[in-house]
Write a protein that binds this DNA or RNA. Structure first.
Lengths: 258, 258
DNA sequence: GCCGTCCGTTCGGAATGCGTGAACGGAAGA
DNA sequence: TCTTCCGTTCACGCATTCCGAACGGACGGC
């Protein structure tokens, strides 16, 4: 049900598809991309060269990479969020005090974007920095802890819009794919005060999240703390303990900003 | 002399021009953009909607903003640089010990991109965070300290290529616009061991920079430290002092990485 | 309460410029 | 040397983009 309301600009779409493909394969050659997207080499050629010219791709020998030009736009978008400067410090603080992975997430267009991500010392050593998480990551709202925390604080109609737009795609066997089940879960989150993600996003990854609301009661973002299942106990007391840390951090943020 | 070698994809160019315009005006409406780029409203309409659909723009009421989607690409590009993770810590360290602004810069396609930027406590208070600098910023090589430090460590032919591609545009009265003068300056930098930027980029801004080279002697990046002229003395001893700090930091980085 | 003006949106039509495929040249590797 | 891969070039035909005019809704002045 992804109706392209107005007439989409196909040329732009293919250019962007190329950029996306370059990122996904972490560098690709012209022929690889032509095969992958089923386009003529000459077509890809023209697109790649204009993208390089614009600074959005870089050529290194015969392989193309994502250009640093993106960084300025990304930083601009991130910096526009009034919470970012403050929230990032709390992410670092959370990562340090818990030793787990922490991030701050906001909603945009029905998707959850990580604005800052950090990993605690203890986890960093064992993971050797190989976490799939990183600032800028985009998630669905229904299968990550922060996303669910955000949804739980939204109006039912807003949640409905988001579900209609993005559905409930599954990424693991534990992902909630039933709408009624999700609404029950959101109710539980509101009661509990925090959200739990138990391998719903990635197998072997568990996390808990809590939302930040502004004085008008609008949700403006969410923090989460998580890690591999063997390091994140399931019992309620540990969860409560982490949730308390989240709440403290959020309280401190809210008192400085609002 | 910006010859578009192959046939540029004009549609992609206008899409990107729109994104750029949105960023420059920090949010813009459809009509504003149509006026600005001299395009029909319907054309802009189609472009904006596909860009929103792809997540590269967001719509907030009637104004469009740069989307968070850029962040993932930017972080990806930045993370590809093998020095980044280490260099960023040194940027923070430099900002803290000097109290000034510090950044780490790399060259891509003949331009200098800031990968990380930080501002020392003492400066932050007085500037109230209003610095024009930020990670992702793109500079010309010839009018910033790090850029000149990079050029000074490159082969003459490489420098020639860059100058041919980008020229020597002036941003202040102090910008070096003469090629011979620039080469003299680069010679002086090599002799001195560090580069100085005295209001060549922005009026009232002074900085010094030094390059990082890998074991093969290739330049891989540069650090710089700077601030408003009233806080950055011109006398050689202060410059030498800061240069020494830069050298120490670079030495420490090189010993951990190489 | 009405008209003027602004916004974004829609749609048919027309020319532009995008996409193709075949041919070229150059760099490796067999 | 011959093969095979790469990226590059070019002329052609048609899909697509771009336009302009018309529409509908929101706002504000008169």
């Amino acid at each position: 049900m992804t109706d392209d309301r107005p007439r989409p600009v196909k040329t732009t779409q293919t250019s962007l598809a190329l950029v996306r493909a370059v990122r996904e394969s972490d560098g690709a050659t012209l022929s690889e991309l032509a095969d992958r997207l089923e386009l003529a080499k000459s077509t890809v050629h023209n697109h790649l060269h204009t993208l390089v010219d614009e600074g959005f791709l870089v050529r290194d020998g015969d392989t193309f990479h994502v250009g640093l030009q993106f960084l300025a736009f990304g930083e601009h978008a991130r910096g526009r969020n009034p919470l970012y400067a403050t929230a990032r410090r709390h992410v670092y603080s959370l990562a340090e005090t818990t030793g787990h992975e922490a991030d701050f997430i906001v909603e945009e267009n029905g998707r959850a974007y990580s604005l800052e991500y950090a990993i605690g010392e203890s986890s960093r050593r064992s993971l050797s920095e190989s976490s799939p998480f990183r600032a800028g990551n985009r998630f669905y709202m229904h299968n990550c802890a922060s996303g669910k925390a955000l949804l739980a604080s939204m109006s039912e109609s807003r949640v409905g819009e988001i579900l209609e737009r993005w559905g409930l795609p599954a990424t693991t066997d534990h992902t909630i794919t039933d709408e009624a089940e999700l609404f029950d879960e959101l109710e539980a989150i509101r009661r509990r005060g925090y959200a739990v993600n138990d391998e719903e996003l990635i197998d072997g990854y568990r996390s808990i999240g809590a939302a930040v609301t502004d004085p008008n009661g609008e949700v403006v973002g969410a923090f989460s703390v998580g890690g591999p299942t063997y390091r994140m106990a399931t019992d309620e007391s540990t969860a409560e303990e982490l949730a308390q840390l989240l709440r403290d951090e959020i309280g401190s943020l809210e008192s400085t900003l609002f």
